[in-house]
């Protein structure tokens, strides 16, 4: 041990982090971290002493190897269907590139995969023409991220959702003066493939389904009793639900009047059934007056 420190704690930490996270390994990291500590890999013992059993580079490599291994494993846990679709080796390669581009800046690993779907979008081959494999993976990653957010986010388990009776007994005044308050776990999203079926086959049934043919798929996702649930809905149901969720300054009646102009017979035929299903699934948790 030295009697005096020769470097600041900050420079040592910045150096070590740079070295162990370098994508080309510790030796490349040492050469790339000259701004923090100027030395060659051969001079590494001036910073990190060797033991009688292990040289300094190998010691640092314990951290370097663990850095990517640990975080790639976490991403694999977060996106099991994407990992299955890609195969473990290819997934790990994508995850490695992702981690190099998007280092974690959060105290929680729950945030690690937040930008993975957009990373896949950004790295999609530019010459890809028709909908294909890359688009399927992007959609699948987006779905799995929805699942993670819904699973750990706020839910309705400890609050009363609106019942079918509540919805059926809305007064004309409430229709014109109120909006429906969506459950905090409610998500709507459109996908280019029926990726929910693929994800369920992989995640719950441990099957290896083939790549599905492109089919515009509109999903409503939520959580009941701590289990994430999803259902594919028609375009009309999706669009009306989307309006009810997103138009925060418009009454139920106004939204339904506008929807009736667009969806006409389909809406008339199914609206009651939809409301019953929305109530049963707990999509809405209250009424909010727009006159406040």
């Amino acid at each position: 041990m030295n009697e005096q420190t020769s470097r600041s704690l900050q420079s040592l930490q910045t150096w070590l982090q740079s070295v162990i996270t370098h994508p080309n390994g510790v030796s490349a990291g040492i050469l790339g971290a000259q701004d923090h500590i100027t030395l060659t890999p051969e001079e590494i013992e001036s910073v990190v002493p060797a033991s009688s059993q292990l040289d300094s580079i190998s010691k640092i490599e314990v951290y370097g190897n663990a850095y990517y291994a640990r975080l790639i494993e976490c991403l694999g846990e977060e996106f099991p269907a994407v990992k299955h679709a890609l195969g473990a080796d290819t997934f790990d390669s994508f995850a490695f590139s992702y981690l190099h581009q998007f280092s974690s800046t959060s105290y929680t690993l729950s945030d690690l995969g937040r930008q993975f779907p957009s990373f896949l979008e950004q790295t999609k081959p530019s010459d890809a023409g028709e909908l294909g494999w890359a688009d399927f993976l992007i959609d699948l990653a987006r779905l799995e991220w929805h699942y993670s957010e819904i699973f750990n986010g706020p839910g309705t388990e400890k609050i009363e959702a609106l019942t079918s009776e509540n919805l059926q007994s809305l007064t004309p005044e409430q229709f014109t003066m109120c909006r429906l308050v969506p459950a905090p776990c409610l998500r709507l999203d459109e996908f280019r493939f029926p990726i929910h079926e693929y994800a369920t086959a992989v995640r719950k049934k441990h099957e290896s389904p083939p790549l599905p043919a492109p089919t515009l798929t509109r999903l409503v996702m939520t959580r009941r009793q701590y289990v994430v649930r999803r259902v594919a809905v028609s375009e009309a149901e999706y669009c009306i639900l989307q309006e009810l969720v997103n138009c925060t300054d418009e009454s139920i009646g106004s939204i339904l009047d506008r929807a009736a102009e667009h969806w006409g017979n389909e809406m008339q035929e199914h609206l009651q059934e939809w409301f019953e299903r929305w109530a049963a699934a707990g999509y809405f948790v209250g009424l909010e007056s727009l006159t406040r």
Partner: peptide, 14 residues
């Protein structure tokens, strides 16, 4: 990998 991953992913969909 040294010490735990310490990460819980449990999201399932039905």
């Amino acid at each position: 990998v040294p010490h735990p991953i310490n990460y819980y992913v449990g999201s399932e969909a039905e």
